[in-house]
Design a protein around this nucleic acid. Structure first.
Length: 365
DNA sequence: AAAACGTGGGA
DNA sequence: TTCCCAAGTTT
């Protein structure tokens, strides 16, 4: 059984890569030390998210929750609020849950055993390898998109990196590259190379410290790798959201369910509607879900929310609420906009909230 | 194995 | 504009 990498001088590869890393690595907030909690938080935030986006979130998160125990003791509402705008909110809820388990089961110390750490919510094969190697210097592979891209090119591997099987293939290859060096530095160097030089579109091969080892470069096919199947385009849903205010000037808000899209986040009451039936459907929805009889009065705003797999075209309506006196609210909360701002909203509903506030300021009421 | 799960930015 | 991307995990 032969492997692609048997022909590579691994010790020389390691030296060239590590020297480049030492000279070119970025100073990032989570690289100040090897605190496993900090490394872990950064790895979760960096999932499918750009470094520049993460930096301010990371700083704020660490200010609010500097340690495992401080996060474990925090209210979920505060954790989500700190995460607001970062997306993939299950990351925050899983991290919060995992930290609570560490407090109860592991005495507040992040487990240095890969098996234990991997059992925590939100910790998959990549995050486990990353934290074990970066924080504890264990020789574990940390195979992310960068590493698959770099090694697809170096070793001329044409497997579709979108397939779950492909990651396992790279995890088989990596250990031979992790011998005799500091895994923390090596894994970070590999990802840094992918981020700064061996980029998806225009790889900087002329600047690459390991260009001499790269089979794709030798064949001139570096831009054809890695192989990745195209994603299907997102479907579109027509949505209607409503602003309903009561006698006290409070607005009706709704908290989303425990699971699924934007779980536990707050929003204006909204439903999917069919064109032409918006008024009828929204009024029925308010009646059935909230026990409120109201009339749609006018269109106030359009908001588009683009997800990776879905697009919401949201029309926002003002509602005229008839029964302002006594209402037994079946669901939702009446809140002043200032109170609502303390809750966590998806970006689309943050826009609606800001817009409502502006309009109310103009009216001057 | 494939789809769900957010968001902002670059070409 | 449209597409694709960015340090993945869960179901």
């Amino acid at each position: 059984m032969t492997s692609h990498h048997e022909n590579i001088d691994i010790a020389a590869f390691q030296e060239d890569l590590l020297q480049w890393y030492e000279e070119n690595k970025r100073e990032l907030p989570w690289r100040e030390n090897q605190d496993p909690y900090r490394v872990w938080v950064s790895e979760i935030m960096l999932q499918q998210t750009k470094v520049e986006t993460v930096i301010p979130y990371f700083k704020r998160f660490l200010e609010n929750f500097p340690t495992v125990s401080s996060l474990a003791e925090a209210e979920e509402e505060q954790v989500l609020k700190t995460w607001e705008g970062l997306g993939y909110y299950s990351r925050a809820r899983n991290l919060h849950s995992a930290v609570k388990e560490i407090k109860e089961v592991y005495g507040g110390e992040v487990p240095s055993s890969k098996e234990d750490f991997s059992s925590l919510k939100g910790v998959g094969p990549y995050t486990a390898g990353a934290v074990m190697s970066i924080a504890f210097d264990k020789p574990e592979p940390a195979v992310d998109g960068n590493v698959m891209r770099v090694f697809s090119r170096i070793l001329l591997i044409r497997d579709d990196i979108g397939k779950s099987k492909t990651r396992k293939k790279f995890e088989q290859i990596l250990p031979s590259f992790l011998e005799g060096i500091r895994p923390s530095q090596f894994n970070q160097a590999l990802m840094e190379l992918g981020a700064l030089v061996c980029t998806p579109k225009s790889p900087g091969c002329l600047l690459c410290p390991v260009q001499d080892y790269c089979l794709a470069r030798a064949e001139g096919v570096q831009t054809e790798l890695p192989v990745k199947a195209k994603k299907k385009s997102p479907s579109t849903k027509e949505m209607a959201a409503v602003i309903v205010k009561n006698k006290e000037g409070k607005t009706l808000f709704h908290q989303r369910g425990e699971t699924g899209l934007l779980a536990r986040l707050w929003e204006y009451p909204n439903i999917e509607v069919e064109k032409g039936k918006e008024q009828e459907q929204v009024e029925k929805y308010l009646r059935e879900q909230f026990g409120i009889t109201a009339t749609i009065s006018k269109t106030v705003q359009y908001v588009q929310h683009v997800f990776s797999h879905l697009i919401w075209n949201i029309t926002v309506y003002d509602a005229h609420f008839h029964d302002k006196e006594a209402v037994d609210l079946k669901a939702g909360e009446w809140l002043h906009v200032e109170e609502a701002e303390k809750l966590t909203f998806p970006v689309s509903h943050q826009k609606i909230l800001r817009n409502q506030k502006e309009r109310e300021d103009e009216i001057g009421s």
